[in-house]
Design a protein around this nucleic acid. Structure first.
Ligand SMILES: NC(=O)c1ccc[n+]([C@@H]2O[C@H](COP(=O)([O-])OP(=O)(O)OC[C@H]3O[C@@H](n4cnc5c(N)ncnc54)[C@H](O)[C@@H]3O)[C@@H](O)[C@H]2O)c1
Ligand SMILES: NC(=O)c1ccc[n+]([C@@H]2O[C@H](COP(=O)([O-])OP(=O)(O)OC[C@H]3O[C@@H](n4cnc5c(N)ncnc54)[C@H](O)[C@@H]3O)[C@@H](O)[C@H]2O)c1
Lengths: 230, 230
DNA sequence: AAGAGTTTGTGAACGCGTTCTCAAAATCGA
DNA sequence: TCGATTTTGAGAACGCGTTCACAAACTCTT
């Protein structure tokens, strides 16, 4: 059976100046670098300074920032606080985003305990599981709810982002439940594809693959050694 | 006219056919899809079938596979088991890769408990921490060692891959210790840049950024709603 | 044996992201 | 005011990855 992938068409218009994904992914890095500069009392910085701090090419940094507007001054550089605010505003970090975690096992528990999200505008607002042993228990100060309550929780707290931290077999069902509940962005840790309707964003984090990529390169290094030394 | 035989051309050179990173990252996905096909008893499959199973474009799949060699038969497709083995061999999944996790807090503990790595040729072989409370305790059946023992452990067990799961402030020191101990591939979960010498691979997983990217798109959706609805 | 149907492997076009480069815009000292 | 210096913003070239499109290679039917 074929799945018809309706549209990777672009609407002829594109009235909204969207920022390239590659850039969006780096803006939080710049923000962290800028905050480090603020802490050490820096008032302005050049693209060279900031790029070094963020670990990217200066030209790339300037191109990235040019997508937001012209916030620098030629011959001077960027006002650190001003730029920091502009980036924060652009990526929506001037407000907090509530997320719900589905599946509070090893990974879900670690995520819900993580303090680092709050400084990035992310707040774990709810935990959901199906295991009777977990429902009702408190994890990192949040009471675990049943999957049936998902819709009510999402509506009540106006949650837009959901995290799937269940086993792979449950991932599609959980994704369906999240979409049904009104979630429009999903971060999926399960090693499984999930299908969602148009308008819902899904990002996947596959830690096994990250390690397998490293293993591949390790194997190549070993192979080269053999060629050279053996 | 003379033909200059002596190369600055790449002749028979480029002895190492490297596979593009983008392809390497997808090979494990194909492998998982192939294993699913094996389980349901499929003997051969077309690039269309496999691509659907893996969630990619069929042309992309064929291009990816062409980097490994010609393992398909025109008019027929791919032998599922044969292709599965070829991919596994290519990405080094015919052997087990030992990894050491440094920092056995919330995340490190979740990783060490994860059963899913073993089926992908990854084995958590050692745990390291600096906290006296953790050193000597057993987590997921592995006794936590002190950071000072890292070099001995890496040497003894021939570990090539290390995972940084410590707070960001410790990340660079840990990376230095890993490199010093002989590690040549690092997966970094800490929200910090780490500098390593040439020859050492570093991949970074930043979960905050994943969520921030979703938040950015959520904000855009909200903005568009406003434009459309009033 | 030949023609119809299927599917791979790859050349070529395309699009996106990165990097190079430099004119324009700002500061500063004389 | 002018020239030297700094630094941004963006045009242009480049490279990589994706997708299209099709000839070549294979099977099956007649
Ligand atoms: N733990 C890790 O370090 C790690 C690493 C890589 C990938 N992952 C992936 O992340 C996911 C979670 O891993 P984990 O180690 O936390 O697993 P886990 O088994 O510890 O936890 C899974 C949790 O999901 C719950 N659950 C099961 N079905 C559910 C459903 N339909 N709805 C709601 N909750 C449900 C279970 O009750 C359990 O609490 C898995 O898909 C795993 O492959 C985990
Ligand atoms: N927990 C999460 O879900 C999560 C999410 C995103 C990012 N992270 C990042 O992953 C890393 C670990 O997070 P965590 O929540 O597990 O933190 P944690 O505080 O629970 O654990 C950190 C562990 O590292 C150990 N440690 C500290 N300094 C060390 C050193 N120099 N050498 C060896 N061990 C050392 C500590 O003793 C502790 O056991 C952090 O950088 C965090 O920002 C975690």
């Amino acid at each position: 059976m074929t799945i018809l992938r309706s549209s990777h068409r672009l609407p002829a218009a594109t009235p909204e100046r969207g920022i390239p994904d590659a850039t969006v992914a780096r803006l939080p890095v710049y923000l962290r670098a800028l905050n480090a500069l603020i802490e050490q009392g820096t008032g302005t910085c050049s693209s060279n300074d900031l790029a070094a701090q963020a670990g990217v090419n200066p030209a790339k940094l300037r191109k990235d920032l040019s997508h937001l507007g012209s916030y620098g001054t030629r011959g001077v550089g960027y006002d650190v606080e001003y730029l920091s605010y502009q980036i924060a505003r652009e990526i929506g970090q001037t407000q907090d985003w509530d997320v719900v975690i589905v599946g509070v096992g090893n990974l879900g528990s670690a995520l819900s305990a993580y303090q680092g999200f709050s400084t990035r505008g992310i707040r774990v607002a709810a935990l959901v599981d199906t295991s009777p042993e977990r429902i009702g228990t408190e994890i990192s100060g949040i009471t675990v709810s049943a999957l049936q309550d998902l819709t009510a929780i999402v509506a009540e707290r106006e949650i837009a982002i959901g995290i799937i931290a269940t086993p792979g077999e449950a991932a599609q069902k959980v994704a369906d439940a999240l979409v049904e509940a009104g979630i429009t962005s999903i971060l999926n840790f399960a090693p499984a594809l999930v299908q969602v309707p148009e308008g819902v964003d899904v990002r996947k984090v596959d830690l096994s693959i990250e390690l397998q990529i490293l293993a591949y390169h390790e194997q190549r290094k070993a192979g080269l050694d053999k060629v050279v030394n053996g």
